[in-house]
């Protein structure tokens, strides 16, 4: 007992020591916040003035106006078409591009340029790619499809290449030992190992293409986005609300379907 009482406060070990790195990081974030709010001229007056407008906007948005449902349906179907075609084409191309980019199957002189191409596809936002395609193929669904094909390649091909790089080589060797051709090795040794992950990537990418297909229309590449943008420009906020509700419903419905698909595979 005497030993316990002798212990002073200075020798006690604090079980929760302060992490100076993290504290420093929060400090830097706080300083940055003050600096950037000042530098960009964000002030409270503008914010509160805006809240009044928000009230006005919301009262004009509700109740949503579904009376022009033909226009809405037309845009919705075009968005769906863009999403389906671009996902199928993009995923199909990504299968080959991903394989070409896998470093354990391809020599460096093939995989490095292919990886560069994938990185290039990923580095621009779909909207910027959509602008370039609208210039080159004109307004309409085709520009949207091409844009989302590029976006799909940038995402799926990269993940697919990584999935192939992580596979176990035992099965590949076993299939090779039977004298199988390269195509058979891919079909019977590689695909079974990556297929379920691949379905996961594909459903995720379809989800993302569905969201983006409702957006590329803002720059003229077809789909519901064009309808939305023109409704905004004509201040038809009740129609805007109807379009937004449709988009959210569409995506919720797909989330429900995609959980079903994932349960099957």
């Amino acid at each position: 007992m005497a030993g316990l009482n002798k212990q002073t406060a200075s020798t006690q070990h604090n079980p929760f020591p302060r992490n100076w790195w993290v504290s420093g990081l929060w400090l830097v974030a706080a300083i940055y916040l003050v600096y950037s709010v000042n530098a960009m001229g964000l002030d409270w007056d503008r914010f509160t003035a805006g809240l009044g407008h928000a009230d006005n906007l919301l009262s004009r948005m509700f109740p949503p106006n579904f009376s022009r449902w033909e226009l809405l349906l037309e845009g919705l179907i075009e968005s769906l078409e863009i999403a389906v075609i671009s996902s199928v084409v993009g995923i199909f191309l990504s299968l080959f591009i991903g394989l070409l980019a896998a470093r354990n199957f391809m020599p460096n002189w093939i995989s490095t340029p292919v990886r560069g191409f994938i990185a290039l596809c990923r580095s621009f936002h779909p909207v910027i790619i959509a602008i370039l395609f609208v210039k080159s193929v004109g307004f309409g669904a085709l520009a949207g499809i091409l844009t989302l094909v590029i976006a799909t390649i940038g995402f799926i091909a990269k993940l697919f290449a990584e999935a192939i790089e992580e596979i176990s080589f035992k099965q590949v060797e076993a299939i090779r030992a039977t004298g199988a051709s390269f195509v058979s090795v891919i079909l019977f040794a590689v695909m079974p190992q990556v297929f379920s992950r691949f379905i996961g990537f594909a459903t995720y990418q379809f989800d993302s293409n569905l969201r983006n297909s409702t957006m590329v229309g803002i720059v003229g590449a077809g789909g519901l986005g064009g309808t939305l943008f023109s409704a905004f420009q004509r201040f038809d906020y009740d129609f805007v609300a109807a379009i937004l509700i449709t988009i959210i419903a569409l995506i919720l419905f797909w989330e429900f379907l995609s959980t079903l698909v994932r349960r099957i595979f």
Partner: peptide, 27 residues
């Protein structure tokens, strides 16, 4: 889910309508 379903460009359109064009809408 609603935050994720609405694209950032659409959010930006909404906030431009509320706060006017500028950085605040973007942030």
């Amino acid at each position: 889910v609603s935050s994720r379903s609405v694209n950032s460009l659409v959010w930006a359109l909404l906030f431009v309508a509320i706060f006017g064009p500028g950085v605040l809408a973007g942030v």
